[in-house]
């Protein structure tokens, strides 16, 4: 996919930033279908516009960007969410990724990095920064040693652990591929699979929580 084939929606409550990103993307040939500053209209607009990629800020005024991410990725199958946040690589980024975001980029990233990340997100790749890899790795480690996690908690294979550690140490996919003597594509697949397992587990946990608390199955959970 090249620029013009990809439609993007920008969700950020800071107008200056929102417009700046939209302009940058349009200059590179992306189609910025919509921009909005709050999570509620983000979900509404995304349902009709069905963008390929939603660029999501996590600090929104109304509901959190994490909830918006969860609802968009669950309700609109073709749409992928790329988190673009200034909040630093902390818990909320991990939560957004667990909720279904396919990647994360810091706001201080260059336009080239942004463009590359949007392209990769559109084709279904996971966009990982070293910081996000550290968070995801930490989450698997936490589940592995948590006494209550039991056997349902997802685990990384040795290879996945290895790949994730290299990403967290700043190696590019290409460098990792040559270091581990595997193909570039295999590296991408490993990274994606670590994310998918985490998201699946998160969804199962939420569903179980919903059932235990007697909530309605369809869409009632997550809105609290």
């Amino acid at each position: 996919m090249t620029g013009p084939d990809i439609s993007v929606m920008v969700v950020d409550d800071h107008p200056m930033w929102r417009n700046g990103v939209a302009r940058d993307l349009e200059e590179r040939g992306f189609e910025v279908g919509a921009t909005t500053g709050d999570a509620v209209s983000a979900l509404r607009i995304a349902r009709t516009v069905r963008p390929d990629v939603v660029l999501m800020d996590l600090n929104l005024g109304d509901t959190s960007g994490v909830e918006a991410t969860r609802q968009i990725t669950q309700e609109i199958p073709g749409t992928r969410v790329l988190v673009l946040s200034a909040s630093g690589e902390h818990g909320d980024v991990l939560e957004a990724v667990k909720a279904g975001a396919s990647g994360y980029l810091v706001k201080s990233a260059s336009v080239d990095e942004l463009v590359d990340a949007v392209r990769r997100t559109a084709v279904g790749d996971a966009v990982f920064t070293a910081g996000l890899a550290g968070l995801v790795l930490g989450e698997y480690r936490r589940m592995a040693i948590a006494p209550d996690a039991g056997s349902q908690a997802p685990q990384l294979t040795d290879r996945e652990t290895d790949v994730l550690r290299q990403v967290a140490k700043g190696l590019t996919a290409r460098q990792i591929a040559s270091k581990l003597v595997i193909s570039h594509r295999t590296v991408e697949n490993h990274v994606q699979s670590t994310l998918r397992k985490l998201q699946l587990h998160n969804r199962v946990e939420l569903a179980r929580y919903a059932i235990e608390h007697g909530l309605d199955e369809d869409g009632a959970f997550g809105k609290q």
Binding site: G134, R141, A168, K169
Partner: peptide, 21 residues
């Protein structure tokens, strides 16, 4: 040169990696 620091908590062990390019 850039540098990366990775902190991992394995429960029984703490692992810190510091890499530069």
């Amino acid at each position: 040169a850039k540098a990366w620091v990775l902190l991992e908590d394995l429960g029984h062990e703490i692992v810190i990696s510091i890499r530069d390019n």
